[in-house]
């Protein structure tokens, strides 16, 4: 990633060592997961097939879904209007179910730059972007972005001119947010699929901009 490089190898976002994901010895919490899952299945809450299908569904979700939505908004003005008016409905048109939460799309322009954070937990538009990156869940990002957004953006390599208003969105409740980054100059000849390739995860969180090619 393009921002500050500190030695966080093997450390959690808050600076603590990670525990091994695939520990050779069964951890207490892994044993709890197995026990909870088996009991939930036995009590008829879920089935093993549903658990497997849900994992497959989440594994299939990644930022390419959000990128497809952005590219459609760049190329189809009527879709862009619908997306800004009702993000959930517009995403559903493309076959992307954003789940029980509602999606709000916010658009970057020559005058406005949007960035998304969740200070209370780590709400994230997971159905369009996949699971959040570790830094999004970190205390540093959660605490600083609402107070010194430009300093945070600068650490991601993004320095905005003073005449651009920064709009920070704190996902405090039932909404999820996706940023529609500005379409890069010189991309008039590209089709929707090629444009989607320019749309990065970070540009849809608002800590980056779309690639220029």
């Amino acid at each position: 990633m393009p921002h500050d490089h500190h030695d966080h190898a093997g450390l959690s976002p808050s600076g603590h060592p990670y525990r091994e994901d695939q520990d050779n010895s069964l951890s207490y919490w892994q044993a709890m997961e197995i026990a909870v899952r088996e009991l939930m299945i036995e009590k008829g809450i879920v089935t093993a097939e549903e658990v497997a299908a849900q994992i497959d569904a989440m594994d299939a979700r990644d930022p390419s879904q959000g990128a497809a939505v952005v590219a459609r908004a760049w190329t189809d003005p009527a879709f862009r209007e619908r997306l800004l008016a009702d993000g959930s409905a517009a995403s559903a048109e493309m076959g992307f179910d954003v789940g029980p939460m509602k999606l709000i799309a916010v658009e970057n322009t020559a005058d406005v730059h949007n960035v998304v954070v969740c200070t209370l937990c780590s709400c994230y538009p997971r159905n369009l972007l996949g699971l959040p990156p570790d830094w999004y869940k970190s205390r540093a990002y959660r605490s600083r972005t609402v107070r010194e957004p430009r300093k945070v953006l600068a650490e991601f390599g993004l320095t905005l001119p003073e005449n651009v208003t920064v709009r920070v969105h704190d996902s405090t409740a039932d909404m999820r947010y996706i940023v529609i980054p500005a379409r890069p100059d010189g991309t008039d000849g590209l089709d929707e699929a090629a444009l989607a390739e320019l749309v990065t995860r970070d540009s849809m969180i608002g800590v980056g901009v779309a690639k220029t090619g």
């Binding site: 709000i104 107070r147 010194e148 957004p149 003073e162 208003t165 920064v166 709009r167 704190d170 996902s171």
Partner: peptide, 27 residues
Amino acid sequence: LYRVRFRLGDVWPDAATPDDTLDAEIY
């Protein structure tokens, strides 16, 4: 539920860029 927009300068008296904004959802 309301999306409320705040001026950063109204949230943080020491904000470096007080005219930037912060939106949050408030019941």
